[in-house]
Design a protein around this nucleic acid. Structure first.
Length: 747
DNA sequence: GTCCGGGATTTTTTT
DNA sequence: AATCCCGGAC
């Protein structure tokens, strides 16, 4: 028996439009209705209600509310993204807004694509002119449009986390920091936090100098140096994209005015995961809240202010799981204070999970202090009991999961595609993958080492980036000795010193490597060959050779392809295949975007996180293609990636102190609360069945590790019914038993 | 002695 | 992926 209301298939969701306000009927209705002909009939051809059908009163209120800023606080599975989608569709269908006026922010690019698709299914192709994207994509678009105004290169490079860590490593080394006391990783995190708080290097340096400690002074130096190098490389890191856009809006009134006039409806999903910079960005874009005339100085006569854009935000404070990168629930908790005339709608009814699952979720999250109590409820039944399993080892745990999947498949017709396995860290997927492979179950790992994060792909892209943007020092240094061409650390340092001494770019210093003090003759020769290679590739690019061909040339001329072919490492064969995929992706980009530049391609690639679009994944474990398409594949992912998704069956694995919650979070209540929210997110992904498992011993990098469970009952006290029999072996004591006797040995 | 390359070791979560 | 350590080439 399927519980609750399943999400309607698109063709049924495409009801609507019938009920249009007179405004739209006047002009746009014809277009809208004509949209794609997909309007208001269900299977047997009879008209079916309108856009609000199937929504409960709170959801309707949220869809229909107009005028003041709207906050939708919603529990998990309450249909918040659906409400947002219908709200957009209703804005369009009613003629209250045209697509060009809409800016919708989602958390991932994938979510953006889905939302765009759903809205298009509801109102037809006119929806195409909306902006639906992540914060980062929206900022890139703005920065590229305004590049000439701001005075930046429109083809700037975008540095992901690993790129910026590399850059930070360079900075720390140059400043002679002890990597033990000031690891680049930590410095990068601190700088990132400053940017998320919109504190620019100068301001920070001033405050650090005035009242700061030595450590702060150091950080100020690192921050300034890091930013200077980013600027020299014509590059933005992820934090810069937001921070710079905010700066631009604040510094160039005409730019701000342009976007305020353009975006009259702004909607933000997952508002609980926004940071301060994103909060300010939204505030700048909506142009509000209109400040009360301070100290009686009524400037009202000055010029007619554009009224604030209509702002809608949706979020659930209990699902805030990105505090580690600066997200703050302040934004959602203080919304009504930020926007004085705000209206709030609460959605507590859950349409996703069984009551037992919701009870578990409530039990977990209720342990968090300082939260607004919320009680998820559902009209559907109790459902199956939650199953807990304590395994001997991670292998045993994996076997349990896989056996259970097979059993569900055989006895309950559960499709593999409806099953997900969650874990806290990416490394944990290995053990489960092993057993899945042996059992011949097809699966895919979402996230982990994603396609564009693979070494060979990043290398190839680094070549492209250097060709596109010679100032991109990080990419240049990445490929300098890749494949090995006899330019070692020593030679690289000499060139860097030359660049530093003469105040020229690294690329320019390479051209006259012979002048570098202390450099060896061999290295100079090798560098000469390398610069010749780049020149050759650049001339190809200038000749207008295709993107795919350019990549082929890069791989051939650099010897990269040869290196992989000659290698005896079996992994390198896969690398070659991945590179073929990249060439295919580039070809696809060219056909889809005929006038796209190399910069456009690189921008696309830097920002995609669209796991489903990517060619790799799906490690098909000897499964017939046909069966896979009918049955789907089991999905493996971290709890963080699971946000916003749902599955019939969910396995949460590795629920041991030290693994989940993670070792690093055990020290503080604040971090522990975030782990609990993460558990809450995981549990509420399940529609029908939920499994929780842990292992008494788990090997980490070869050596055995016994997780500790100090309280005996674990880090939370589960307050839900646990099935006591079932599974393939009798489950061990869970969760009451101490499970793991000895404290962690560390490694 | 200098420098490069390969191996071992160790990884929270991610736009 | 980034670092450190050691063997081999010059």
């Amino acid at each position: 028996m399927s519980s609750g209301r399943q999400r309607l298939p698109l063709n049924q969701e495409a009801q609507l439009i019938e009920e249009r306000t007179p405004k739209a009927a006047a002009r746009g209705s014809q277009d809208l209705a004509a949209g794609d002909g997909r309007i208001t009939t269900d299977e047997d051809g009879s008209p079916t209600g309108h856009l609000l059908d199937g929504l409960n009163p709170q959801q309707r209120e949220a869809v229909l509310h107009r005028g003041s800023p709207l906050l939708i606080v919603a529990g998990a599975g309450s249909g918040k993204t659906r409400v947002l989608t219908h709200r957009i569709a209703h804005l369009l269908a009613s003629g209250d807004a045209h697509p060009g006026q809409i800016l919708a922010i989602t958390f991932t690019n994938k979510a953006a694509a889905e939302m765009r698709e759903r809205v298009a299914a509801l109102v037809g192709p006119r929806a195409g002119r909306m902006w639906v994207s992540t914060f980062h994509s929206a900022c890139v678009r703005i920065l590229r449009y305004e590049a000439s105004t701001i005075g930046i290169r429109s083809g700037f490079s975008i540095y992901d986390a690993t790129d910026s860590r590399r850059l930070m490593t360079l900075v720390c080394r140059e400043l002679d920091l002890d990597p033990k006391r000031h690891p680049p990783r930590a410095m990068a995190a601190k700088v990132s936090n400053l940017k998320n708080e919109l504190i620019d290097p100068d301001t920070f340096a001033t405050t650090a100098a005035r009242s700061g400690t030595e450590a702060e002074g150091l950080l100020a130096q690192v921050y300034a140096d890091y930013q200077a190098r980013l600027a020299a490389a014509q590059a933005f890191d992820f934090d810069d994209l937001i921070m710079t856009t905010v700066n631009v809006l604040q510094v160039f009134p005409q730019v701000a005015a342009k976007y305020r006039q353009r975006f009259r409806r702004i909607l933000v999903d997952e508002y609980q995961d926004t940071n301060h910079a994103q909060y300010v960005l939204i505030r700048e874009l909506v142009g509000g809240p209109a400040a009360e005339p301070a100290d009686g100085r009524a400037d009202a006569a000055a010029e007619p202010e554009l009224p604030m854009a209509e702002l809608t935000v949706v979020g659930d404070a209990d699902q805030s799981i990105y505090a580690f990168r600066g997200a703050t629930i302040r934004n959602i908790v203080q919304f009504e204070a930020d926007y004085p005339h705000a209206h709030t709608v609460a959605l507590e009814q859950n349409y996703r999970s069984t009551q037992r699952i919701l009870t578990a979720a409530n039990a977990i999250i209720s342990h968090n202090p300082d939260r607004v109590p919320k009680n998820l409820w559902t009209g559907s039944g109790d459902g199956a009991k939650i199953v807990g399993y304590t395994a001997d080892s991670e292998h045993d745990e994996a076997s349990f999961v896989v056996n259970e999947i097979a059993d569900l498949h055989a006895r309950h017709d559960v499709r593999h595609g409806d099953v997900a396995v969650f874990y806290r860290t990416n490394a944990q997927s290995r053990a489960i993958e092993d057993v899945l492979v042996r059992a011949g179950v097809a699966y895919r790992v979402v996230g982990g080492t994603r396609f564009y994060e693979r070494r060979e792909i990043k290398d190839a892209l680094a070549y492209l980036r250097v060709l596109d943007n010679p100032d991109d020092t990080v990419s240049l240094r990445r490929i300098l000795n890749m494949p090995k061409r006899g330019i070692g650390d020593r030679a690289e340092a000499c060139v860097a010193a030359l660049a530093q001494r003469d105040g020229i770019s690294f690329a320019a210093a390479l051209e006259r490597a012979g002048d570098a003090p202390g450099i060896g003759a061999r290295a100079v020769n090798a560098i000469g060959a390398f610069t010749a290679l780049l020149a050759e590739l650049r001339s190809l690019l200038a000749d207008g050779v295709g993107l795919g061909q350019l990549i082929v040339a890069i791989l051939d001329c650099s010897g990269y392809a040869a290196m992989l072919r000659d290698s005896r490492d079996p992994q390198d064969e896969t690398r070659l295949e991945n590179l073929e995929e990249l060439i295919a992706v580039a070809g696809e980009f060219e056909t889809q975007t005929p006038d796209g530049t190399l910069s456009d391609f690189l921008t696309d690639v830097s920002l995609v996180a669209d796991a489903d679009d990517l060619p790799d994944e799906a490690v098909a474990a000897g499964q017939a293609e046909l069966e896979r398409t009918e049955d789907g594949v089991v999905t493996l992912m971290t709890l963080h990636t699971a946000k916003g998704l749902e599955f019939d069956v969910v396995f949460m694995t590795g629920m041991e102190e030290g693994v989940f919650p993670h070792q690093r979070s055990l020290g503080s209540q604040k971090d522990l609360a975030e782990e609990r929210r993460l558990a809450y997110v995981g549990v509420t992904r399940a529609r029908q069945r939920l499994y929780l498992s842990r292992a008494v011993t788990r090997s980490v990098f070869g050596s055995q590790c016994r997780p500790r469970s100090s309280t005996g009952a674990g880090w939370w006290t589960p307050g839900w019914p646990i099935r006591t029999t079932g599974g393939h072996r009798p489950p061990r004591r869970w969760p009451a038993g101490p499970g793991c006797a000895r404290p962690a040995t560390g490694r």
